[in-house]
Amino acid sequence: MESLIELLPQLWKAAGETLYIVGLTLFFGGLGGLIVGLGLYLTRGGSLLANKPVFVVLNLLVNFVRPIPFIIFLAAAQPLARLVVGTGIGNNAIIFTISLAASFAMGRIVEQNLLTVTPGVIETARSVGAGTGRIIFTVLLPEALGPLILGYTFIFVALVDMSAVAGYVGGGGLGNFALLYGYRQFNPIVTWAAVLLIIVLVQLVQYLGNTLARKALRR
């Protein structure tokens, strides 16, 4: 217990790093997921920009990336991280890699949520002369907003999960903290402190997501 009190400054720092990593990956991965999801939805047969080759390639890419266990993906994507963010280690590298993995995972969720929008309202928007861009922003996304918020809340947990292995490539965060000061020093109390903090964080975000989704769905 005393050791935990001694470690408190490190714990808060780790929590801050987790928030930093998860916040940025939620933004970049979320944006990427939106683009991938819209791409899948719009190029699907019969949709607004139906394009079979693009859909097939995108669909394959998503199916290819999603099943790779994240820790392997982290290692495999390291050269790409070096190329894009200039480094293969540290928080920036892990933010890049999580965002990339999350884009594909979230893309699938976005696609599924967009498919719940009835084709009739899309057709109605077309019937009054709306173009594709306008339909995306005034019909598709607003009509799917409730499920989309829940989808992003869901992916948040996956982001926390992925951020836990940041320590392997020199990143920080609660996962790294728990391994470094808890697991390796045979101090389960320290490990559990990190777990508790993560649970609280996830609960808060889930509550926020539910509230926002309820507001969007007006239920």
């Binding site: 009835t118 009739g120 607003p142 907003l145």
Partner: peptide, 25 residues
């Protein structure tokens, strides 16, 4: 072409069996 059709469609209203109202509005 699709772009020019948009002005044509403004002059033609349409109603549907399932009403197709935007639930978010």
């Amino acid at each position: 072409p699709e772009r020019e059709l948009r002005t044509v469609r403004l002059g033609i209203g349409m109603i549907f069996q399932q009403f197709n109202l935007l639930g978010s509005r």
